[in-house]
Amino acid sequence: MSLVTRWLKPTTTVYAHCDVPCGIYDPHQAELAARTVARMVELLGQLPKENPTEADRQKFVRCVAVKEQHAEIVKHEIQVIWSDYFKPEHLERYPDIHDRTWKILKLASKNKQNIDAQAASDLEAAVKEFSDIFWSTKK
């Protein structure tokens, strides 16, 4: 490098960050969101079925809203990892990735539509398995 360019060269680097080259992917967010969905279903189950007070009604609405929001977060996070992170070589090792993703997305939608403890725990388990696959490809 010539003297001039050495003199000109900046000492500081600034990052125009993008997640593809940096590879910042983490299924943790999805797991957390799935856990939240399950917890909301649990809380909803604890509410009195008859003669709800004003507070119960407000809690019901809140839990339902949070449940749907977090089911949507699951869908988003899983979709990003599926479409952006997984590559053909991962697919060779885990040929069922597409199917798993599809099922998780369906399950998440089911959780949005219903208050269903079984569906919630299925979702949690499915996301956990997805996450395990993700981490095993990092090894």
């Binding site: 000109l8 900046p10 500081t12 600034v14 993008c18 080259p21």
Partner: peptide, 20 residues
């Protein structure tokens, strides 16, 4: 007051390796 750009989220306006 002088910086070098790394990575690509500002393309095409700024390319990695630009000095600003």
């Amino acid at each position: 007051w002088r910086v070098a750009v790394a990575e690509e989220s500002m393309t095409p306006a700024l390319q990695p390796g630009d000095w600003l």
